[in-house]
Design a protein around this nucleic acid. Structure first.
Lengths: 261, 261
DNA sequence: GCACGATAATGAATTAAACTCATTAATGGG
DNA sequence: CCCATTAATGAGTTTAATTCATTATCGTGC
């Protein structure tokens, strides 16, 4: 760092700049975003430092501010770019899959796969971007909407075709799918252990599709078992009420048989 | 700032301090946490400024650092305190409720109620604290564990008593409940509109408990319309009776093996 | 009522990092 | 080979967290 013989202007040392190479706007922006992504992913948003992003490219902080007005602006750009790539072949792939269950499973699996493949980016979205006051104005917000809209559509179709019951709360189903996936992967996102997108997808689809109710009721999935679930449940409630009644009125102990057809 | 007649020491102006009142450590800590909570909630963590927290109390920034080593430390303390209060009467209340469905619904409803009543604090937990690298070392982590453990236990019991099928993926159920609740309330947390904890709780419990499977078909259709309608009515009666019965049933003790049909 | 030691509180100084801007100079079209 | 355009610089400026040596209040024992 010794600039002992630097030229001087008005008595102040002036460092001769090393040869500076200029890039096109597009190229520089792309480079900065690459570098930013690496640093953001490695350190997280708040611990990432602009000077490091610049340093990696051999440029100066000010240069970054020529292209991105704030650090957050840079984050948004990086995330948008990532999201765009993810959504690129989304519909194309979905087109090749048919059947409610398969389509649903694919969307869920794909989401889990994204988390699994790029946990750091996912953390940026959920941990930093989504919480910001300006999130709604972000195109990430819109893209996410697009992203989950497909899920809603599939469930809606299933309702229309009577595969699902009529009173399904669509939005809640969607939120339980994506919220469940997110919570489920937290440990992994924190760097603890691993998870299987396949297993997780199966579990989620299973819960959503078949429901949690006792095995004796949910024998099959088709529309064949009309009311079977409901009847089964009524039977179990009846049994229970019998027990309660018995315990409260011992003398009139239930003579009714327990078996039903 | 003309301090023309301030006393001088070594030629430097010395501002005479106004009378300073000292509080006990406990009291000061409590005051700081109150003020911090207010500011954190109003501005969010990163936009909150220590000097404002201090200013509200008529003290100086340095004083806060006597009790909290970092801004984040202060955040953690505030959240811990909040969480502790929430968990205070948790088990007590839960004790008074019996029946899988009711207990599950209560836990979910209570969670949603907390979000509804104190969205800003909830945002601090999810947006700032949970993402931090040190989250696991926080007692908030442990408390959260306690918090969701109850849910897991209820589902587990239901599996044991065969009310739920045997292959229920416990953890995923828990994650879908809490993750679903969180996603569902985002818009509200961002300050857009409102939501009903009751409705949301019903929806979540409904999906988890009965499942999404379309065996019902009650709403439309010709084939079986009569039966479906009757079943629907019986179901609602059953639900009501069940609630009454559960409130009278002595704990869960009587939940022994159930005849398979 | 007073000295005094423990410690609450100060306020000025120090970093650290985001962000600004006047200036410099590479580049490509004429 | 100009020279206008504009990429890039680097030296600030600002804001906010954090540190610390110093000051002075308050409870306690005499």
């Amino acid at each position: 760092m010794g600039h002992a013989e630097s030229p001087r202007v008005k008595g102040v040392a002036v460092h001769p700049r090393r040869r500076v190479y200029r890039l096109s706007r597009e190229r520089r922006v792309a480079d900065i975003m690459d570098s930013a992504r690496a640093v953001f992913c490695a350190k997280g948003y708040s611990d990432a430092v602009i000077s490091e992003i610049a340093g990696q490219l051999g440029i100066v902080e000010g240069t970054i501010y020529r292209y991105f007005s704030t650090k957050r602006d840079l984050l948004v750009a990086v995330v948008e770019d990532w999201y765009r790539r993810i959504l690129a072949d989304y519909d194309e792939q979905l087109k090749g899959i048919s059947g409610t269950r398969n389509r649903l499973r694919f969307l869920i699996w794909r989401h889990l796969k994204v988390i699994h493949d790029d946990p750091a980016m996912f953390r940026l979205v959920t941990g930093e971007l989504r919480g910001g006051a300006d999130y709604r104005t972000t195109s990430v917000f819109d893209m996410n909407r697009q992203y989950t809209k497909r899920t809603l559509a599939i469930v809606e179709d299933a309702v229309k075709s009577r595969e699902f019951r009529a009173d399904v709360p669509l939005r809640m189903v969607r939120d339980m799918i994506y919220g469940g996936a997110e919570h489920y992967t937290w440990a992994f996102l924190r760097g603890e252990g691993d998870f299987s997108p396949d297993t997780a997808a199966d579990e989620i689809v299973g819960i959503i599709y078949r429901g949690l109710m006792g095995a004796d009721m949910a024998s099959n999935t088709g529309n064949g078992a009309v009311g079977a679930q409901a009847i089964s449940r009524l039977e179990s409630v009846a049994r229970r009420l019998e027990r309660v009644a018995e315990s409260r009125e011992p003398r009139r102990a239930g003579e009714k048989s327990r078996g039903q057809g």
